[in-house]
């Protein structure tokens, strides 16, 4: 059979499944338990809060992984998978017990590793900075009607008086009377957390997407380092004493 007469459909599927990203995703330990074929029933999409508001479909995620088309997978890893809210409704409703949410989580990790995530994650810079410098990811003043349509009108209405509400709700807890972060942690706690980011290699991973955030965290740590080292030694001594 000549080159021109080959069935183009068969050829596409065969070559597509050999793709690098496809293989990397299939290697992930979660995939075996997350994909048992797909009935195309749409239960996952019907229950998916992300599908209701954004350009995302858990059914497409499963279909895509069954078909294994490398180009589609790459496109997804750069864009649509970042719209999943990781609520796992798809997993708990799917009649095939598939879990698009788990597939998405594996794809996200690989996308970060493979350098496909920068553009999609650019919008999360503020959240990432907050996590790395304050220890919590969302702040009440990040709530805006444009950013979170899926939170509904009631939440938007309440967001206009969040400081008053917080002061009322958390009387006697000054750490909670803030709106630029979820709560105010002590300097020592933040420093400890940052040290964990650093030593576990997580900070380095963050650096592949947000290189400038690594500098911010390191500056932040340097500012506090001397003071914190003293505290750490104090705590160590205390611990030693309690052992005796």
């Amino acid at each position: 059979m000549s080159e021109e007469n080959k069935n183009p459909v068969t050829e596409k599927i065969e070559s597509a499944k050999g793709g690098h990203f496809y293989k990397e995703i299939m290697k992930d330990f979660r995939i075996k338990e997350s994909l048992h074929g797909c009935l195309n029933c749409g239960t996952c999409v019907a229950n998916c809060p992300a599908a209701a508001f954004y350009d995302y479909s858990p059914r497409e995620v499963c279909q895509m992984m069954i078909e294994g088309d490398e180009e589609t997978i790459e496109e997804y890893m750069k864009g649509k998978i970042w719209n999943c809210a990781q609520c796992y409704s798809c997993k708990y409703r799917c009649p095939k017990e598939n879990s698009a949410a788990d597939i998405v989580m594996a794809m996200r990790e690989i996308a970060v590793r493979e350098g496909l995530a920068e553009e999609a994650l650019a919008g999360y810079t503020r959240i990432a900075k907050l996590v790395l410098t304050r220890g919590n990811q969302l702040a009440p003043d990040m709530l805006s009607p444009d950013a979170f349509p899926d939170w509904g009108p009631r939440m938007i209405e309440l967001s206009s008086k969040k400081m008053e509400m917080r002061e009322e709700l958390f009387k006697g807890f000054p750490g909670m009377n803030v709106v630029d972060r979820a709560w105010a942690a002590e300097d020592y706690t933040i420093f400890e957390m940052q040290k964990i980011w650093e030593e576990s290699g997580a900070l380095e991973k963050v650096g592949t997407v947000f290189p400038f955030l690594v500098d911010i965290v390191q500056d932040d740590m340097d500012d506090k380092r001397d003071e914190m080292e003293v505290k750490i030694n104090e705590k160590k001594a205390k611990l030693e004493a309690s052992k005796k």
Partner: peptide, 12 residues
């Protein structure tokens, strides 16, 4: 009720 019209590709 919620469902997806899978032929039209939209949740309803």
């Amino acid at each position: 009720l919620r469902a997806e019209e899978t032929i039209m590709d939209r949740p309803i």
